[in-house]
Simulated assay, not measured.
Amino acid sequence: MDWTNRPLGPPESWSGVLKITAATVLASRFPQCMLWGAEGIMLYNDGYAPLMGNKPCGIGRPVAEVWSDVWDDIGPIFDKGMAGESSFFHDMELHTQRHGFDEQAWFTFSYTPVRDEFGKVLGVLNTVVETTETVLAKRRIELLNGELAHRMKNTFSVINAIAAQTFGFASDDDAPQARFSQRLQALSTAQDLLLHDSWGRADLEQIVRNALAPHLPAEDVLALDGPPVTLVGKQVFGLSLAMHELATNAAKYGAFARPGGKVSVRWQAGTPGSDDPFELVWEESGVGPVERPARTGFGTGLVTRALPMEFGGTGQVDYGADGVRFCLTSSMKTLKK
């Protein structure tokens, strides 16, 4: 490029700071653009060039002229940079005309002041990556998940209706139909949590709260304590059903059915790379002595066999002097923090 009549003049006349910064930008494989001086004269590398679309070459031209279509949005950011303040934006939406038509695009970028040896700001370095495809893909997933959630709710409703016709319309809360419907609702709640996240994950505390909410006689009967832990796939379904079974038992015979009864659910996550296990404990108090049931039902089998299988661990139910206690222990390799 002939720089003779350009605002910066011939490269041999550039300052040391400009030469070094320009060389750094050109050597980078990450999209970068130097905006030099009060006018923001553009110097960008090959990684940045595709972001220009069909715009004429912007090297050596003022940024306000090249990006006039989005200058109302980025102009104030450039001014902040020239005032010595850095900026960072994640998935910022801009309406551009870089391909000859109005276009929605998203970018993650930073504006960083470039100073001389005396601290004076001489320009701004723009490091940027376009995230349009990522943002649109995420929106498509959210739309599909919403449709899937709607269809799943309809499916659960149909299954519930079939169950009602099959079991009859018994009003007893302990009737097979009622127990089936409640377990189906626990599955539906877990499904909603999974579909809320694009990657099929759910927060452990939220899983517990959602599963127990329909059974709580009052908010102060439940205490939760533990660090953030993310569960995936079958772990979410398993824990949701297990919490439902424990809560159902507590509502009929245990802490949720007794004045002064309390339930504590606490968990701890071992340090990654260590041998410390993940442990989750359900513990009732204010109940009095509890005897082991004469037979093992669906709920007991779920929390002691099915749930531990999903976590690659073990489960133990104890019937003690003051209520039921359940402990799940698992290797941290099966969990994602």
Rank of each mutant, 00 (worst) to 15 (best):
D116S: 00
F167W: 09
H244E: 02
K252L: 01
N145Y: 11
N145S: 10
N249E: 07
E130G: 13
V135I: 01
D225F: 05
V124M: 07
T134S: 14
F118Y: 15
D174H: 08
L212R: 03
F237C: 03
S181H: 15
I207G: 12
R179W: 00
K252E: 05
D197K: 04
F237Q: 13
A242G: 13
V129W: 14
K138P: 10
A255M: 02
F167D: 00
I159C: 14
D172K: 06
V221Q: 02
N160C: 08
F180N: 04
A257K: 13
N210A: 04
A190E: 12
Q191E: 12
Q182K: 15
R201D: 00
L194W: 03
A170P: 10
A250D: 07
L212N: 05
R258E: 15
L184D: 01
H150Q: 12
A163C: 12
L216A: 03
V124E: 00
V229K: 07
G146N: 09
L231Q: 09
D203Y: 05
H150Y: 13
G226D: 10
I159P: 13
L241D: 01
F237A: 04
L136A: 13
K234C: 08
P176V: 00
N126E: 15
D116C: 02
S188L: 14
S171P: 06
T166R: 11
Y253L: 05
D220S: 14
L246G: 05
R201E: 12
R140K: 07
G260A: 06
A163G: 14
V208C: 02
E142H: 07
A223H: 10
Q182S: 15
A250H: 13
T230Q: 15
A163K: 12
H196I: 09
E219Y: 06
G238D: 06
R151E: 09
R201C: 04
P227L: 06
V129R: 10
A213G: 08
H244C: 06
P259S: 03
N154T: 09
G254N: 07
S157T: 07
F237T: 13
A211P: 00
L187Y: 08
M152S: 10
H196N: 15
F167M: 01
L246P: 03
L125C: 07
Q191R: 08
V158W: 03
P259M: 04
G123I: 14
F237R: 02
L144D: 15
D172E: 07
P228T: 08
V229Y: 08
M152F: 04
R183S: 12
L148P: 10
A178V: 05
T131M: 09
A213K: 04
V221L: 03
A137G: 08
A250Q: 12
Q191G: 06
V158T: 10
L222W: 05
T127A: 15
V158C: 09
R179G: 00
D173F: 01
L125Q: 04
S198G: 15
